[in-house]
Design a protein around this nucleic acid. Structure first.
Length: 723
DNA sequence: GTGCGCTTCATG
DNA sequence: ATGAAGCGCACT
């Protein structure tokens, strides 16, 4: 008789452990199966985490066990590695194991047994002209007759087995796994990369290809240095070795170019994974990955949990992006999970960025992970000159426009020559607050402690936190005055200004208001690249990884908007945004120019971005982090209480404060309790306690106790936003 | 006595 | 989480 350990689908303290059930005779149940089990009065779904022979020490306690009712899927949905990963996540991120498992499985997934076994398709690559030999003979046969199934080929010429192996090793023949049910399925394009790599890129490729399994790398390459091409070539060898590769991107809709490059290189062997897939597309891709029909997946963070059979490589492109961190339970960081997989399964991990997160850059410089730099732009491209404009001076000298004179001139010149420009501003809407000239009161959201943003296209005032919307008041709600003014320019306002200053200019706007669907993003990208518009105005969403060859001016309208947020990464974010945005120009044959407008231009994040100096930035920022004990030198835990009753919220935060004060003895800094920087959001009052220090088991024990006992408290490790 | 709200307990 | 049992207290 066999016993199954089951993690049940109920989220509550005390229930988050394995429950034992008898596996009925003849029922096929293995680790990773989903099962229905009786529990309490009713029944629940659960995941099998272990199977034991009855009588072994771990099999059960001395209680009468109930039997498993039935199995949900014909085959396990999670591998043993994934089961282990879920346990690790539960501990690391203070969540219930079942939350981790749920994050790994697409919702509503229905599994079928493994689909038809895969077959191997042999295919030539490029050209080969050697002396008459067995190798050349076989190569010629393959070149002439096109892709052939390995099985058939060897049935016909069994003596060629070793010769074929040699050709694959040589790189002139590749073998792809295909679904035998649809023989035309994945075909890796039959030619090698059309690009020749420069020395640096070549070095990066060979270093990583030859590196030990499980090794981790930072590929630190300036914008335009050809990181994607490096990924592509590494993946080529990974795939030829019969392994799978995963390319993670921050947001798939924002990287249409990257996706296209993978698809054009690897064709049907590439699968996509992102949030706007339908349930059935999702299930199909999931299954194709599991059955080995997809060699490569390009996807967002949750793709890290796809059921790869043999994953050889994980690429995290734009490694520093905050989208790699899940903000809800399980609050994992994709990089951590990738590293865990590397240690556990031998998958290689490559983190790519022009502006790595401080943590990653630190680990690389300390030698804890490998470090490869790409310091040159490919081809004849150069980094654009960056000019910093002090907006205080502009104002003093009588320029009240949102645009500095330098930016106006640069854009005028570009437009006269028929070139394009991009303007960045990290603020949506038309005006970020509406204020009465007489009493000085700004219109606030009644549910959140923020001002309402005016959206001109809908003629509404809107809260960006809870979407509370009202008509713009004609009189001040406080004093009745009619002298109401709009302050704090947003993207809508920029568009209006551009059209005013350069009449007849075709302007596109890209922010969360104009781009809701994936389709409209592709549309916008296409329109701009094909010069159906002259100026693109947008938030940081357009700063990422896109090539616009006709853009010769990039204007950053207000570089320091994010510099004063209560966020220990504020300098890092500002620097990253500026460098990424600057990288949007000078990518074609045109020389580009970047104009950075700031009110605090002397800040080192802005100065080092202007010289494209990551090292300068790093050296200063790492010192600040070290002095203050921020990551990577220590962890930060943000304990947040939110409650509709202010009194309750206060009581809870004080109770929590009491629980953590003991940690101060061991050198943990405890800040607070204090109202959050945004004390009220969506009608709930918010209070914070912040812990800072080195992680240790005692802290984790205290935190997990709080996480379980205090329902209105949420804990974030190394938060990205501390608002 | 019994109906109702709140706490405690067990769940394999 | 969820249901059941235990407990205290007001009330037809």
């Amino acid at each position: 008789m066999k016993i199954a350990h089951v993690i049940i689908d109920r989220m509550a303290r005390g229930l988050d452990r394995a429950w034992s059930y008898v596996i009925p005779e003849g029922m096929d149940i293995r680790v990773g199966h989903r099962v229905h089990v009786p529990f309490g009065k009713g029944e629940t779904l659960g995941i099998v985490t272990a199977v034991y022979e009855y009588g072994t020490p771990d099999s059960a306690a001395d209680v009468v066990l109930k039997p498993v009712l039935n199995v949900v899927d014909p085959v396990p949905v999670l591998s043993a590695v994934m089961i282990e990963l879920g346990m690790w996540m539960a501990e690391e991120y203070l969540c219930f194991p079942i939350q981790a498992y749920k994050a790994m499985l697409p919702r509503n997934i229905r599994l079928r047994p493994f689909s038809a076994p895969t077959q191997e398709l042999c295919q030539v690559v490029g050209q080969r002209q050697g002396r008459p030999s067995k190798r050349q003979q076989l190569w010629d046969i393959l070149a002439e007759r096109g892709p052939l199934l390995k099985e058939e080929l060897l049935r016909e010429m069994p003596e060629m087995r070793q010769v074929l192996r040699d050709l694959v090793k040589e790189g002139t023949v590749v073998i792809n796994r295909v679904d035998s049910a649809s023989p035309s399925f994945p075909v890796v394009k039959g030619h090698r990369s059309p690009f020749t790599l420069n020395e640096e890129q070549m070095h990066a490729v060979t270093t990583i290809v030859e590196a030990a399994p499980g090794s981790k790398w930072l590929l630190e390459g300036i914008t335009g240095s050809g990181k994607t091409e490096v990924y592509l070539q590494i993946i080529e060898t990974i795939v030829q070795q019969g392994q799978q590769a995963l390319v993670l991107v921050p947001e798939i809709a924002l990287t249409p170019q990257t996706v296209r490059r993978f698809q054009s290189r690897f064709g049907q062997a590439v699968g996509l994974w992102h949030s706007s897939l339908t349930d059935s597309e999702r299930a199909k891709t999931w299954q194709a990955v599991r059955d080995g029909h997809l060699a490569i997946v390009v996807g967002v963070r949750s793709a890290i949990f796809l059921p790869f059979r043999d994953l050889g490589l994980i690429v995290l492109d734009e490694e520093h992006e905050s989208t790699y961190k899940q903000e809800e339970h399980p609050r994992y960081h994709t990089r951590d999970v990738a590293f865990w997989l590397a240690d556990k399964t031998g998958t290689k991990v490559v983190l790519g960025s022009a502006t790595p997160s401080l943590e990653t850059a630190f680990y690389a410089r300390q030698g804890l992970i490998g470090w490869i730099r790409l310091t040159r732009r490919i081809g004849t491209r150069t980094l654009p000159p960056v000019e910093i404009i002090d907006m205080r001076e502009e104002l003093q000298e009588g320029n009240h426009s949102i645009f500095s004179r330098a930016l106006q001139q640069a854009l005028t010149r570009a437009l006269d020559r028929g070139e394009q420009g991009i303007l960045f501003l990290n603020r949506r809407g038309y005006a970020s607050f509406v204020m009465c000239r007489d009493c000085g009161q700004a219109v606030q959201c009644p549910h959140c402690s923020v001002t309402l943003t005016y959206h001109q296209d809908q003629n509404k005032l809107m809260c960006h936190y809870c979407f509370y919307t009202i008509d713009p008041p004609t009189a001040c709600p406080h004093c009745g005055s009619r002298r109401i003014r709009y302050f704090g320019a947003g993207t809508e306002r920029i568009v209006e200004e551009v059209m005013k200053l350069w009449p007849g200019t075709r302007v596109l706007r890209a922010d969360r208001d104009t781009l809701s669907s994936r389709h409209s993003y592709y549309q916008l990208y296409d329109d701009f690249v094909n010069r159906r518009a002259d100026v693109l105005v947008g938030t940081q969403m357009i700063a990422k990884g896109m090539d616009f060859p006709h853009v010769s001016v990039v204007g950053i309208v207000a570089a320091d908007v994010a510099l004063h947020l209560p966020d220990f990464r504020r300098s890092e974010r500002t620097f990253q945004l500026l460098v990424q945005a600057s990288g949007r120009t000078g990518r074609g044959d045109l020389p580009g120019v970047v104009i950075v407008q700031a009110y605090e231009p002397e800040h080192f994040a802005i100065q080092s971005a202007a010289t494209h100096g990551y090292d300068d930035f790093y050296n200063q920022e790492i010192q600040y982090r070290r002095e203050l004990g921020y990551p990577p030198f220590g962890n930060l835990w943000l304990l947040e209480v939110a409650d509709a009753s202010e009194q309750k919220a206060k009581e809870t935060i004080h109770r929590i404060f009491e629980k953590v004060t003991g940690l101060m003895e061991m050198g943990i800094e405890v800040l607070g309790p204090a109202p959050a920087p945004l004390p009220k959001v969506r009608g709930r009052f918010r209070y914070h306690v912040l812990l800072k220090g080195a992680k240790n088991p005692r802290i984790m024990a205290v935190l997990s106790e709080i996480e379980r006992d205090e329902l209105s408290c949420s804990i974030t490790v190394d938060p990205y936003y501390m608002l």
